[in-house]
Amino acid sequence: MNPEIVETNLDDYKKLVESLKSDGFEMMVDLTVVDWFRKKEPRFEIIVQLLSTIHNARKTIKVFVNDEDLTIPSITQIYPSANFYEREAYDMFGIIFADHPDLTRILMPDDWQGYPLRKNYGSGRIPVQFKNAPKVD
């Protein structure tokens, strides 16, 4: 098992992030989500990449989130850089970050329906009609 990768559960997630920050991981560089639709249960895997410039080390935190619940504590209080990433994760996967200061869509339009990066969101599901192009049925 790679010591750089830490798997945790939702209850310990925030505590773990806090303790890692006090251990010298001063930067949160990335937060992303993988949708294991019909492959794994719980469905969503949240991956946080931390970087320590003092120890020159990286840490990857993995947390699973349930499809029904979709809620995970926000870490913007610990790492302000998580702000945009959590908004992106909400925008693309519909993960709800409790206590996030401004959980709105970031890349998609505000009135967008659905969460584009989910596996059951097929690409090309919205027909695009270009100007002056012959209509396709």
């Binding site: 559960n9 939702l10 209850d11 989130v65 349930n66 809620t71 504590p73 709800i96 409790a98 206590d99």
Partner: peptide, 17 residues
């Protein structure tokens, strides 16, 4: 697994403010 009580209600958010 996730327990329901950590989900923040509207009041909790308001309280935080």
């Amino acid at each position: 697994m996730k327990s329901k009580d950590t989900r923040k209600t509207g009041f909790d958010k308001f309280k935080n403010i």
